[in-house]
Amino acid sequence: MADTSGTTAAGRRLSRARPGTMRLIDALGYRLPLAGVVSILHRASGALMFVLLPFVVWLFDVSLTSEVSYERFTSAYLAGIGVVPAWAVKIVTLALIWAYLHHAIAGVRHLWMDATHSVTKEQGRSSAIVTLVVSIVLTLALMGKLFGWY
């Protein structure tokens, strides 16, 4: 690939007119390395937890406040919350579980890189694989628990 500055005709025109300009549509034309996949998922999982924070606080509230409210907590996963069915509550919870695991493990990866100066391309790739595998395996394990498969 000789020209990598823009992947569409419009992108190439824009790149010629304003060198160094990259738009989302151009960025999507590149194949992201695994370290890049972990990086964008770190951001996406953080954003997801930020948006769903009131739901987490609500779970914290009803599960802790009293035995009566604790019933509302358990029934959210058995009967749903209002018009929201239980399966949807479980899907959202599963998304939060994945987001927490991925974000935490990718964060530990950063701490490890900082502490040991492990910043070569190869180390970035191998630690990205570890991050993805561990977070997905743990998510699947907790998914089984959440949906009552074992």
């Binding site: 924070l53 009131p54 606080v57 914290f60 509230d61 802790l64 406040t65």
Partner: peptide
């Protein structure tokens, strides 16, 4: 959200 969590915790 922080205020809400703190309220749950300290009551």
């Amino acid at each position: 959200c922080t205020g809400w969590m703190v309220q749950v915790l300290w009551r």
